[in-house]
């Protein structure tokens, strides 16, 4: 079938991108990637985009196809086609280097490699006393389906406003270590992952899970990391104590009252009554004026003692691993 590619051209600094049209004749089940390779080989060797394996494993051929981020070697042209044409852009949340090629180092590798890499083997091989089971390793394998295609990062609401957020792909890599029972450094790793721009900055919007083409459910992996982190007694990194303060204040409120007292939690998260109170002043005053808040903390509600008992039980059940 004949079709037209409209491909974004220009180096990274080009503000107003120009689109170049390429006409090409391919089979309907040809992938967008292979069709673009054909264009590059037959028509224009200066067209820059990445990709190698052509079978969805190397993760290098992510582009925007008609505005949607896709693993282009797993997207057939017939599926992608819109009015006989396919529009190709570079992914938005990474600096563009040239044409459709993005700065992969800045976008993904610097983030992945900012976390201590490599399993540090703790002796739990197969056979022997510490042997791990297949059930232990299954979640690790699921996370390791990750091809670093970066599609999840493209859906990420935090990266959308802050390119430095590590993002679901890099955090899924941390999950792979923390949940690998053969690695002996879970605690150090959750501290590392908990620094600014790490797990606690995730807003659990579930976009990543919605985006990942390989059913890794990366948002869930981040939430699992947070759960494991709390288990290990870690609620922030070393440079963002407000995350731990937030957690503790939230927990205290629910534990003692059964419910959340947003105002008090906010004050405590910002660092206690004086600092937090000052920070909350403008909002707090406006809230009072509009009848949105009462000065007193929420009273205990019925059921509070039952909730408190659940917390006590939770501490007992999870005590062994603290």
């Amino acid at each position: 079938m004949e079709l037209t590619f409209n491909v974004r051209r220009g180096d990274g600094r080009t503000k107003d991108a120009t689109y170049q049209a390429y006409h090409v004749d391919v089979e309907p089940e040809t992938s967008v990637f292979e069709a673009l390779v054909k264009v590059r080989e037959e028509q224009d060797g200066t067209l820059a985009f990445r990709g190698n394996c052509a079978v969805g494993f190397c993760g290098d051929c992510t582009m925007l196809v008609n505005g949607r981020q896709e693993v282009t070697c797993l997207t057939t042209v017939s599926k992608a086609l819109k009015d006989d044409a396919i529009k190709i852009d570079p992914i938005p949340y990474a600096p563009t280097v040239k044409d459709v090629m993005y700065d992969a180092k800045r976008f993904i590798w610097d983030k992945v490699n900012s976390f201590s890499p490599g399993v540090v083997f703790n002796g739990a091989g197969w056979g022997g006393a510490q042997a791990v089971t297949d059930d232990d390793l299954r979640p690790v394998r699921r996370a390791m389906r990750c091809t670093m295609c970066g599609i999840c990062d493209q859906g990420c609401t935090v990266i959308d406003v802050n390119l430095d957020f590590k993002g679901p792909a890099a955090l899924t890599k941390v999950y792979r270590y923390v949940f690998d029972p053969r690695d002996g450094r879970a605690k150090e790793r959750v501290v590392e992952a908990g620094e600014t721009n790490g797990v606690w900055d995730c807003v659990h919007c579930w976009e990543a899970s919605d985006h990942c083409p390989f059913d890794i459910d990366p948002t869930h992996r981040i939430m699992d990391l947070r759960d494991r982190s709390v288990r290990l007694g870690v609620k922030s990194g070393t440079g963002n104590r407000q995350a731990a303060r937030h957690y503790n204040a939230f927990e205290r409120s629910v534990e003692n009252h059964g419910w959340l007292d947003e105002r008090n939690v906010a004050i405590q998260s910002y660092g206690g009554l004086i600092k937090g109170g000052l920070k909350m002043m403008p909002t707090g005053l406006a809230a009072l004026r509009r009848g949105k808040a009462n000065l007193l903390p929420h009273p205990k509600r019925p059921g509070a003692s039952a909730i408190k008992a659940l917390f006590a039980r939770y501490r007992e059940v999870t005590r062994t691993e603290r």
Partner: peptide, 16 residues
Amino acid sequence: LTDVGCSGAGVLTSEV
């Protein structure tokens, strides 16, 4: 329901 507790809001660990 008056005597139940906060959902945890995705902040608290799902373990509690």
